[in-house]
């Protein structure tokens, strides 16, 4: 079964790669299998992880003092399915409202703390290796870059004069950031392809030492 699996995987791998030459029958078949298999995979994963493990095991666990809450979630989930029945479909807005509200409330705090608050604090803190002129320049540049980047995002003022100049500096910093991201993305993508080629030439064809 394993050998068959490796051959099948190799065939599917080649099928997807063949798209680079041209859209073709093999690719279309692989694509459809992919859509079906992945939808099934997630369907099953949701079922076992959430409905079975979280809900069923949760409410049947008599030591769980909060099992009552799970019934609320269950009820909200069932409301979601009312979409299938046209007339009372509007009930599905309740679970939606619940999720949207909870997401808004929760992330509001975590993002505010980790991404805004702590980052401002970190910028004005001395780095551990502080001392040399170089490290001071780095420290100053981070502060300057963050500052000018924020100026770029400022909505209440036209980008003109000194303000516009600072915004310009900000966009330069952003561009260097994007360049760094781009470089790293290239690195990542190449590594992934290497993984597949290693499978084809190593595991399947056995050509690599």
């Amino acid at each position: 079964m394993e050998t068959f699996g490796i051959w099948l995987a190799a065939l599917l791998t080649i099928g997807i790669i063949s798209f680079l030459y041209k859209d073709n029958v093999l690719y279309k078949a692989c694509e459809s299998i992919f859509v079906g298999i992945s939808a099934g995979y997630w369907f099953i994963t949701y079922y076992w992880d959430n409905l079975y493990r979280k809900f069923y095991l949760g409410v049947t666990d008599m030591d769980n003092p909060h099992r009552f809450f799970l019934w609320i979630a269950f009820a909200l989930g069932v409301m979601m399915l009312t979409r299938l029945i046209g007339k009372i479909g509007w009930l599905s807005r309740w679970p939606l409202a619940f999720i949207v509200g909870a997401t808004a409330g929760l992330y509001m705090m975590t993002y505010f703390v980790s991404n805004a608050f702590v980052q401002v604090g970190a910028t004005i803190k001395l780095p551990p290796d502080f001392g040399s002129v170089g490290s001071y320049i780095s420290f100053g540049m981070i502060a300057l870059g963050t500052f000018s980047g924020l100026v770029y995002f400022f909505f209440s003022k036209e980008h003109k004069g000194v303000f516009g100049g600072t915004a310009k500096l900000g966009i330069w910093f952003l561009m260097v950031t994007f360049g760094a991201s781009f470089g790293y993305t290239v690195m990542s993508r190449m590594s992934l392809m290497l993984g597949r080629l290693d499978f084809l030439f190593g595991e399947w064809l056995g050509m690599i030492n």
């Binding site: 805004a116 401002v120 604090g121 910028t123 004005i124 001395l126 420290f139 100053g140 502060a143 963050t146 500052f147 924020l150 100026v151 995002f153 400022f154 909505f155 209440s156």
Partner: peptide, 22 residues
């Protein structure tokens, strides 16, 4: 959106005063 800008002003103020003091 104006409120967001106030947030940015606070952050920028923090950066400016903090780095200057440092």
């Amino acid at each position: 959106l104006k409120g967001q800008d106030v947030g940015k002003v606070i952050a920028m103020f923090g950066l400016l005063v903090g780095t200057a003091a440092m």
